[in-house]
């Protein structure tokens, strides 16, 4: 599927106008939300690295055998390993891709990239953020001052362009706006209409929501609209951008959700062991056990184990202990 690097403005506006943006309930299931995403679409993932990763929604997409998605994220971790191994995507746009510094370079990422089974399109971290921001602003590009002189820019070929500033005459980068088809974002709480509050680190999620043509929210809990209206200053994502709301407690497991649970570190160690030993079979075994095997998301959590869940929650809530 060929796509415009920058969504034509008329299409961007028309897609938004065509959506029902009324204040309506959007609560649904993971399975029904997965049906809102079509093969080949550009899906942007909220959170960053091992934080507020919308794992449960991705779990549903892998089970639904969605394929050929273009996936973008600020920093990619094990969720993107899983999407590659499940065949959900062959094209990841991000700035850094590995499980995490303390586990070394991801063998799954390496396997797919070194054997040219998939493409890792690399932009600098700020450039990823500014591309989403330009998308959120409804402008076709945004000037910036990094990536010049590097091979990261050369590797992007015609997608990387510089221009002369019309005011100062300086050479600046023109970063193309990124308007994903769908943004999948996990939050601590939102109301049934999709007014979402985010605790702690916001990453690029607000720009993601504003840039995307539609947003799927997963949430630790659904609160009432009155709850939201008592503290509207805490609302980070407005309902008008949101297409679906799914309540999924522990929806980032085994990654982190700020103030609720930290990463499941023992599980992440095991994951690193399995995938380092054999990035192909090890990964398929992992998917069979944690993605395809469990009948429900709760079954997946049972597979992680009650001890591990409670430990992650105890550490997660500890930010409020001081």
């Amino acid at each position: 599927m060929t796509r415009d690097l920058v969504t034509p403005y008329a299409k961007l506006r028309a897609d938004t106008v065509a959506r029902d943006r009324g204040l309506r309930e959007k609560v649904t299931t993971l399975e029904a939300a997965a049906d809102l995403i079509k093969d080949g679409e550009h899906v942007a993932l909220g959170g960053c690295h091992m934080s507020r990763t919308p794992i449960a929604m991705l779990w549903a997409l892998m089970r639904a055998k969605r394929k050929d998605l273009v996936v973008s994220r600020s920093i990619a971790s094990t969720e993107s390993d899983m999407l590659l191994a499940a065949g959900t995507t062959k094209h990841i746009i991000t700035s850094w891709f590995s499980q995490g510094l303390i586990w070394g370079v991801s063998k799954v990422m390496r396997h797919h990239m070194e054997h040219k089974l998939a493409r890792y399109e690399e932009w600098s971290h700020m450039s990823m953020g500014l591309r989403y921001r330009a998308g959120a602003m409804g402008i076709p590009f945004i000037p910036s001052r990094s990536m010049m002189g590097s091979d990261v820019s050369k590797e992007l070929g015609a997608d990387f362009k510089t221009m002369t500033c019309p005011f100062t005459g300086e050479e600046v980068v023109a970063l193309p706006a990124l308007n994903p088809d769908v943004a999948i974002i996990h939050v601590q709480r939102c109301d049934p209409y999709g007014n979402a509050q985010i605790d702690g680190l916001q990453f690029m999620d607000i720009d993601l929501a504003m840039a995307a043509k539609r947003v799927i929210l997963t949430t630790e809990r659904i609160v009432s609209n009155d709850f939201i209206r008592r503290t509207p200053d805490q609302t980070r994502i407005p309902f008008i951008t949101v297409e679906a709301v799914v309540e999924v407690p522990m929806g980032c497991a085994p990654h982190e959700c700020y103030g609720a649970y930290e990463p499941f570190f023992d599980h992440m160690d095991e994951y690193a062991d399995i995938t380092t030993k054999d990035p192909v079979k090890g990964m398929q075994d992992y998917l069979a056990r944690y993605v395809y095997g469990p009948k429900t998301w709760s079954d997946m959590l049972s597979e992680l184990g009650m001890e591990a869940v409670l430990d992650a929650c105890r550490r997660g809530r500890s930010v409020y202990n001081d």
């Binding site: 091992m50 700020m126 953020g129 702690g200 990453f203 720009d207 930290e262």
Partner: peptide, 27 residues
């Protein structure tokens, strides 16, 4: 903290802000 993106990074911080904005402080 195991990375610069987990909640352990925010302990007793003066401010948390979006990634893009903290990087823009460089620019």
């Amino acid at each position: 903290p195991p990375s610069t993106n987990e909640q352990r990074c925010t302990r007793r911080a003066a401010m948390v802000l979006p990634i893009t904005d903290v990087l823009l402080l460089l620019q």
